[in-house]
Amino acid sequence: MELTLAIAIAVLAGSGVYLLLRPRTFQVIIGLSLVSYAVNLFILSMGRLRMDAAPILSGANANPADYTDPVPQALVLTAIVIGFAMTALFLVVLLAARGLTGNDHVDGKGN
């Protein structure tokens, strides 16, 4: 499972960075989204990978070893929300730039 997740993160981050460096704003925003997926998976993996373990304790004398680490899950949730909002905001600026410059080059230059 570690290998699968590592490869998934690597592929997402690699494609994301490639797209980030492209000259079109649409490619940049897709790249940013892909990198954010990679980062979110990475945060989740920092709580160690566990199968069939709940993040929320049930009962007063539960053994913490039976549960997965809830903190990274909370962090991922926050990161997703913030990343989503920032992407939406970037999309607005992207459209404004498209409207003002008449093309979708990141520097506002034509072809």
Binding site: T25, M86, F90, V93, A97, L100, T101, V106
Partner: peptide, 8 residues
């Protein structure tokens, strides 16, 4: 807008 795009 151009500067903000890069900045963001």
């Amino acid at each position: 807008v151009k500067a903000a795009l890069h900045y963001i």
